[in-house]
Amino acid sequence: MKIRLRFSKQGQMKFIGHLDMVRYFQKVMRRSEVDVAYSEGFSPHQKMSFAAPLSVGVLSRGEYFDLEVNSTESSKVMLERINAQNAEGVEVLSYSFFLTTQKMP
């Protein structure tokens, strides 16, 4: 099941680069005990896909990433759980189920 998350990056967090934000959210998902799906193979990693990177030093209230999970609770519960682990300046604004379309052959 895919989840689309919208988050804001404010305050001092504007100085954090894109790759560091990816690693940051991997840690936040682990700490908040989200049942994230992992890739298979020699070195498994969380199945996350971020939108276009934001320039360093730019504030935003509309950054997105998709997350594949094995199971989930309600959006409200998950938002509370994730935001409890976030650092000052980062807030997850929405947690919504994302329907995928099948690819054409």
Rank of each mutant, 00 (worst) to 15 (best):
N86Q: 15
V58C: 11
V92A: 01
N70H: 13
K9E: 01
S49L: 09
F42E: 07
L19T: 08
S55M: 13
L19K: 14
N70M: 13
Q85L: 12
E33C: 05
S94E: 07
N83A: 15
Y24G: 03
P53I: 14
K9H: 10
Q102I: 15
Q26K: 11
M48S: 01
G17I: 01
I16N: 04
G17S: 13
K9N: 08
S74L: 05
Q10H: 10
G17R: 10
F98T: 00
Y24W: 07
A87G: 13
S94V: 10
K103W: 07
S43Y: 13
K2H: 04
E63Y: 02
M1G: 07
V69N: 03
G11R: 08
M48E: 02
F50G: 00
V92M: 06
G41R: 10
S43I: 13
N83D: 06
A84P: 03
A84C: 08
F50P: 01
P105I: 15
Y24D: 02
L93Q: 10
F97L: 15
A52F: 12
I3C: 04
M21F: 03
Q12E: 07
M48K: 07
S32R: 09
K9G: 02
M48H: 03
D66F: 00
S96N: 06
F97P: 02
L93Y: 05
G89Q: 05
V36Y: 01
M13R: 07
I82S: 02
S8N: 08
L19S: 09
H45P: 06
Q12P: 03
N70V: 13
G41D: 05
V34A: 00
F15C: 09
Y38M: 09
V58A: 11
E40T: 14
A52D: 06
R4M: 02
V36S: 00
E68Y: 01
S49F: 06
G57C: 07
R30I: 09
K76Q: 09
M78F: 04
E40S: 10
P44S: 13
V77A: 09
I3Q: 01
K2C: 00
S43D: 08
L54T: 04
L54Y: 11
L59G: 07
S74P: 00
G89R: 04
F65L: 01
M48P: 00
G62M: 10
Q12T: 09
V69M: 06
R4I: 01
E88L: 10
M104V: 12
F42M: 14
S71E: 12
I16W: 02
V69F: 02
G11D: 15
E68M: 02
P105C: 14
M13W: 04
S60G: 12
L19H: 12
E80H: 12
S60L: 11
V22S: 05
F7M: 08
K76Y: 09
V56G: 08
S43E: 03
M21R: 08
K27F: 09
K103E: 11
